[in-house]
Write a protein that binds this DNA or RNA. Structure first.
Lengths: 242, 242
DNA sequence: AACTGTAGTTATTAGGCATAACGATTGCCG
DNA sequence: CGGCAATCGTTATGCCTAATAACTACAGTT
């Protein structure tokens, strides 16, 4: 026996298999980046790995399964990026926190439009993947950081017009029923503010990622984005930059 | 001679050909709606029309050309919907105008997620279409209505925080250089406000169209959307509903 | 040393895009 | 009104990809 195995620990075969799975996903993502499309051919992935196409079917039942796995990974990656981005700034400065989250979201989308489209775009051929799959849950998970900022703003007694506005009664019920992802109780107004801020941020990022702002220089887009986040911050009641 | 033809008027052949082109696009769109995907097979289109696939190549050189034509149509359709939507409300009530535009945009996207994805999503296979094609221009054209509202708000001396905020100097230059689509001179702050309002609206619509809000009931989504537009209105300085 | 299961191969099927080559219809004009 | 020619449609074909089948090689076990 080459190595003692702890009970429940992955055996050697499982480990190399998992490594291959990872390599397949990584290779597919690289190809997506290069070709700027989510339409990746199995044969290309295999060739890039020194394999033939049918070999990949040992690891993924079909294209859909590979795409689904990549979507899950993309969410994890986005969540990780947001975590790092939020951790890199002064925790007490809400404006900086908000800006860091927004910039991370934006940069992540810009660095990997293919991965971004994988998550938020209409899936490539037939969209079996987005049917109440892992995306809905993961999206909420990736938004936990926005939630933190909004809750912190409330804790400090800050409240912009977005937090002061009425919340529709029926909506409030459904928002409360959704326990968020941290288990904390979130006031409906805060929850609503979070969703709307997210939508606002997301819209800018989408338009930019898909080239609708390509008539502006990068510097101008940066400035525009800053204004956008500032507007959102004002609506939340978070004071702007010094 | 079956019918007198005015000089330059389309001959009979041209007319029936144009009709066929329209029918192809219409059929393709119907199939997209049914299958909820932008991935439409030539053979299916042909079969639905009682033809065979190669016949379609008499009208479109390839898939890309058909898709491009459909994108142009989609922009026209969106623009028309916005025109009608804006015309249907009291012109003096800016809040109603804004809400009508936003609702039209949203409803249009919701009624036709496929067409919406065609315009604003990452193009289907290889994205030759979105390369400075008709999309950038048409997008601005479709936004003229937002422009009108923002300019009207300024004319009346209304100005929310979004319109009062500073505009980056470099950005201002580029915004002024872009003469909009009506030829009018647009103050940079107004132009910026318009873009940011658009982004905000667009974000909500995207998230909803792609199912990120599917955990909410339709009524709740409506309420959430109303709040979203109200927030944008407040940022613009447009007074909310009575 | 034989056994079992897994990872890989080549060969094959099914289906889509696109073109080629051919036939039929019909608008058009002397 | 008869012939022409363009145009529209067809069937046949080539090429590419997804997916499966059938077979081979090898690692680790007993």
């Amino acid at each position: 026996m080459p190595q003692d195995q702890l009970v429940g620990a992955p055996t050697r075969r499982e480990r190399v298999r998992a490594a291959t799975v990872e390599e397949i996903k990584r290779t597919a993502l690289t190809l997506m980046r290069e070709q700027a499309t989510a339409d990746v051919r199995f044969a290309d992935i295999a060739r890039a790995m020194g394999l033939t196409a049918p070999a990949l079917y040992r690891y993924f039942a079909d294209r859909d399964e590979l795409l689904t796995a990549m979507i899950v990974d993309a969410f994890d990656d986005l969540a990780a990026a947001l975590r790092e981005g939020a951790a890199a700034v002064e925790p007490d400065d809400l404006w900086q926190r908000l800006m860091a989250i927004a910039q991370t979201y934006r940069r992540w989308a810009g660095r990997d439009p293919a991965q971004f489209a994988l998550i938020f775009g209409m899936p490539v051929p037939g969209f079996a993947a987005s049917k109440e799959g892992p995306t809905a849950d993961a999206a909420k998970s990736a938004m936990a950081h926005l939630e933190v900022v909004v809750l912190a703003a409330i804790d400090r007694g800050l409240a912009g017009p977005m937090l002061l506005g009425e919340v529709d009664a029926g909506l409030a019920v459904e928002l409360e029923h959704d326990h968020g992802n941290s288990g904390k109780l979130i006031p409906p107004a805060a929850h609503q503010a979070m969703l709307l801020s997210w939508a606002s941020l997301h819209g800018f990022v989408c338009l930019e990622a898909y080239g609708q702002f390509s008539w502006l220089s990068e510097g101008s887009r940066d400035a525009l984005f800053t204004s956008h986040v500032r507007t959102a911050a004002a609506a939340l009641g978070v004071p702007g930059p010094v």
